[in-house]
Design a protein around this nucleic acid. Structure first.
Lengths: 192, 192
DNA sequence: GTCTATAGTCTGATAGAC
DNA sequence: GTCTATCAGACTATAGAC
């Protein structure tokens, strides 16, 4: 145990350490040498499991991003009601619990990620979420309200640090604000 | 004109090109060689004007970030009323018109910026804004509402792309949503 | 499946001529 | 104020032994 080198899970361990370091100090500033040192293996061992550095990110994206893809697939089958949108936000908030380290990495390394192969995929994912939560026929201000509701879920990763309270409480507060916002957007659009 | 090398404004031209490239492709992926080539000078010429690569970012931050510092200074002298908070948002929205390229760079390179000398300064700036817009005595959900209002101003840089309309219209819509949010936060806190 | 060794390239930065 | 020339160091990636 402890320092005993485990067999067969090296790939997983590479992913764990890579995400941790990528999220902590950025993609570019994290070298393969550094990842290897943390695992007490050599760089060449990394290249056995992943063709390139970019491949590590891609694998992280595919493995940890699945809950979000499933959420989108779910949402696209639902009726476009207020209740659907609110349930979408609830599930998104829950999905972020798992995908948060990945999402934090994506957010803090946008400029880098944009040029990677996953950049477009990630963007499309966000556009799909945006398309489900807003009504393109609604007044612009209500569309903006809905999109802001969506991105309010991300706020817990950076903007709410100054507020006192547990991460869970802040997460729930952000969700509450987001649910309010889509309700307002809905009410306003169905009045006029 | 055109390609005529101008004298005395090289420093300014370095800043312009650097910010453009930093914002477009990221800080790390932009090399000094690339900046120099865009200006048709050599790397060594860059080093005459700036001691290090980081110094270029620092100068950008100081020159283009001034409106935000002035806004904070203004805000800290005002009474803590709803009207002050709303005026803060209006001025912040206007300040972003000028500082947007810089802010986009800061946002898309968070992981990098965090490790630079400006990282802490930038963070403090955002904490100061956050402290002015929210009431630490208010219920958490209202504090979250206020902070989200603030960061909604940033949404125009990335989240609102899918919505149809001019950037100006979207900017104004985001401001309207933000003004609503602080008003709700205020109303809720003064009821109970 | 993991290693050593290294190729090949690019980087930020400096020294010194003009 | 801009140049040429060059530095040491870091990087990704590969080849080939075990």
């Amino acid at each position: 145990m402890g320092n005993t080198p485990r067999r067969g899970d090296t790939r997983q361990r590479i992913q764990d350490v890579a995400l941790e370091l990528f999220a902590e100090q950025g993609y570019e500033k994290t070298s393969l040498r550094e990842i290897a040192e943390h695992l007490e293996v050599t760089k060449a061992a990394l290249y056995y499991h992943f063709k390139t550095k970019e491949d590590i990110v891609l694998s992280l994206f595919q493995d940890l991003g699945r809950p979000l893809d499933e959420l989108i697939a779910w949402g696209e089958q639902q009726p476009r009601s207020l209740e659907t949108k609110q349930e979408l936000l609830r599930r998104y908030s829950a999905a972020l619990d798992i995908a948060e380290p990945l999402m934090r990495f994506m957010q803090e390394n946008q400029a880098t990620v944009r040029e990677l192969s996953i950049g477009q995929i990630f963007k499309n994912r966000m556009l799909a979420m945006s398309a489900m939560i807003r009504d393109p026929e609604a007044p612009m201000v209500d569309q903006v309200r809905s999109v802001i509701a969506l991105f309010s879920m991300h706020a817990r990763m950076f903007a709410l640090q100054a507020i006192e309270g547990t991460p869970e409480d802040k997460r729930d507060a952000a969700l509450e604000v987001a649910l309010d916002l889509v309700e307002q957007a809905h009410a306003s659009s169905t009045h006029g």
